[in-house]
C-alpha cells in the first residue's frame, strides 16, 4: 500500500510540474520580458562560480582545441603565409591611403572617424544546441553594457548582447539560427543579411541569383544596423551555390572568429 501511495504522490508532483512548465513556456514565448528579471538574477547568482569554473577548465578546452587544430596545422600555415604576404603588400599602401583620406576629410569638412569605445570582457559560459548559440560574459549593466551592443574580437564580429543583467550578459553568436545581421560584401558593396543556420553554419541571404558573388569575398557589417557599427569584419565567402526555383543564391560564410575558442571579447559601447 505504501509504495502505491508514494507512487501516486510522485505522479501528482509530476502533473503539477508539467502544468507549471506549460504555463512558464507559454509566458516566456508570449512575453519574454516577464521572466527577464528571473533570468538576470540567475545569471548574476551563477556568475562567480561560472567564472572560476571557466578559468579552471580553460587548459582542458585549450588542449582540446589544440588537438583539433593540429590536424589542420600545415594547411593553415600555408594559408596564413600567403595571407601575410598579401597583407604586407597592402600595408604601406593603406597607410598612405589613410593619411590621404584624413587630409581630404579635413579639407572638405567631413567628420573624421571616431575610435570605438570598447570594454574587455571574459567569456564565462558557452551554450550551443540546434536552435541557439550563446556565450555568457562577465560584464553587465554595472559596466555600461546594454542589450543590442555588438561583441567583437580582433578577428571580427562575434555577436550581439541579447540580455544584460547587473554583472553578466548573454551574447547571441552570429551562427545562432535567430541571429540576423545586415552585411555588405566588401568588394562589390552589395547588401545582404547574415544569418545562422540549424547546421551551425553562417549564411549570407537575400543576394539575388543574378548577382555576381565570388568565393573568398570578405563581408563586413553594413551601415544600416541600429546598434552594430559599420565595417566590422564578419567572414569570408566559402561557398556559393544556386538552388533551383530559388530567386536568391545560397552563400555560405566562413566566420573569421572561431566561437569555440573564445576567451576574451570586446563589447562596443559606442
Amino acid at each position: 500500500m505504501a509504495p502505491l501511495k508514494k507512487n501516486l504522490k510522485s505522479t501528482i508532483v509530476l502533473a503539477v510540474i508539467i502544468v507549471l512548465c506549460i504555463i512558464v513556456i507559454t509566458v516566456s514565448f508570449k512575453d519574454a520580458s516577464l521572466l527577464k528579471k528571473a533570468k538576470s538574477t540567475t545569471l548574476d547568482f551563477f556568475n562567480p562560480i561560472q567564472e572560476k569554473t571557466f578559468l579552471l577548465f580553460q587548459p582542458i578546452s585549450r588542449l582540446f582545441n589544440g588537438i583539433k587544430d593540429y590536424f589542420k596545422l600545415r594547411e593553415k600555415m600555408l594559408a596564413l603565409k600567403n595571407e601575410n604576404a598579401a597583407l604586407q603588400k597592402d600595408y604601406s599602401e593603406n597607410i598612405n591611403l589613410k593619411i590621404e583620406n584624413e587630409s581630404l576629410r579635413k579639407m572638405f569638412g567631413l567628420q573624421i572617424r571616431q575610435e570605438r569605445k570598447t570594454l574587455l570582457a571574459n567569456v564565462i559560459g558557452f551554450y550551443e544546441n540546434k536552435w541557439q548559440s550563446q556565450i555568457i560574459l562577465n560584464v553587465g549593466k554595472s559596466n555600461g553594457i546594454l542589450e543590442g551592443m555588438a561583441v567583437i574580437t580582433e578577428e571580427g564580429l562575434v555577436g550581439v548582447v541579447v540580455l544584460s543583467s547587473n554583472n553578466t550578459s548573454e551574447v547571441r553568436l552570429i551562427n545562432d539560427p535567430q541571429s540576423s545581421i545586415g552585411a555588405r560584401v566588401l568588394s562589390s558593396r552589395k547588401l545582404g543579411i547574415v544569418e545562422g543556420g540549424l547546421d551551425k553554419k553562417v549564411y549570407l541571404n537575400y543576394i539575388a541569383a543574378s548577382e555576381d558573388i565570388f568565393k573568398g569575398d570578405i563581408l563586413i557589417t553594413s551601415e544600416f544596423g541600429e546598434y552594430i557599427p559599420p565595417e566590422i569584419l564578419i567572414g569570408r565567402i566559402k561557398k556559393v551555390s544556386i538552388v533551383a526555383n530559388n530567386p536568391y543564391k545560397q552563400i555560405e560564410i566562413e566566420p573569421f572568429v572561431d566561437f569555440k575558442k573564445l576567451e576574451n571579447v570586446l563589447v562596443i559601447k559606442g
Partner: peptide, 10 residues
C-alpha cells in the same frame, strides 16, 4: 533555462 535557454521552461 534561466541561464541560457531560448524557451524558458522547456
Amino acid at each position: 533555462d534561466l541561464m541560457v535557454g531560448n524557451v524558458i521552461g522547456l
